[in-house]
Design a protein around this nucleic acid. Structure first.
Lengths: 113, 113
DNA sequence: AATTATACATCTGTTTCTTATGTATTAGCA
DNA sequence: TGCTAATACATAAGAAACAGATGTATAATT
């Protein structure tokens, strides 16, 4: 099963922050592979969504970059700024809370007794 | 805490389907109140999002309506069509699965061992 | 030699929602 | 009684976020 795209919307930034909380630095392509691997192909980060988001987060001062050459090919590593670490904790716990609320909502009997 | 809006995006249809799976019929305003109540004000369905979505789902053949007059005021009740019941089961279990995957992703150690 | 994987990037369009606005009835309160 | 809040519907303009396509280029595999 691959989730319908609208479901994944809104979680991308938090996923990036989570990855970079656990890893000192990662590059874009690596993120797509890690998420794919961790979710058994259920979540695939598309490049058209990922790269603009990474750029935006860098512009916000949440992420910082360092480019390295691997042979002749550039690889752009991202890591959290201090601001990004704070933001990361916030967004991750917000998502955890949201997941619980949604789980309750889906599991609960929503009819009036 | 009220969740940042982007997090709730994509879950609206499934929430509607869940409510109407548990209740034979509901009207729009009632849905906003029930969700608000069930989530302790954490999720507020806005009318600008809700009504167009209800109309779209009716046009898709997922929902059917019956209007009633309460005094002089019209109240529009929504209920699931047979197609809607099938769709509802699908979307609800997809969301449940997604929540588990995200919970795992947030909880897991995403770094390489 | 050709294909696949790696690795970056941008752009157009679509979907989905937010915010604002509008209309009207009913209930509660001062 | 007059005012405000709640009930209940609706639409419309714009923003946000993403999908899908396309582009470039190097490296690895078959």
């Amino acid at each position: 099963m691959i989730y319908s795209s609208e479901l994944i919307k809104g979680t991308l930034k938090t996923i990036i922050l989570k990855l970079l909380r656990d890893n000192p630095r990662m590059y874009g392509y690596e993120m797509t592979q890690r998420v794919k691997e961790l979710t058994g192909d259920k979540i695939q980060l598309t490049e058209g969504a990922l790269y603009p988001t990474l750029h935006a987060m860098e512009a916000e001062g949440i992420l910082q970059t360092e480019s390295e050459y691997i042979g002749k090919r550039v690889r752009k590593y991202y890591s959290l700024t201090p601001k990004g670490k704070t933001k990361g904790e916030e967004k991750i716990s917000e998502l955890a809370d949201f997941l619980e609320t949604m789980k309750f909502l889906i599991g609960a009997q929503t009819s009036i007794s």
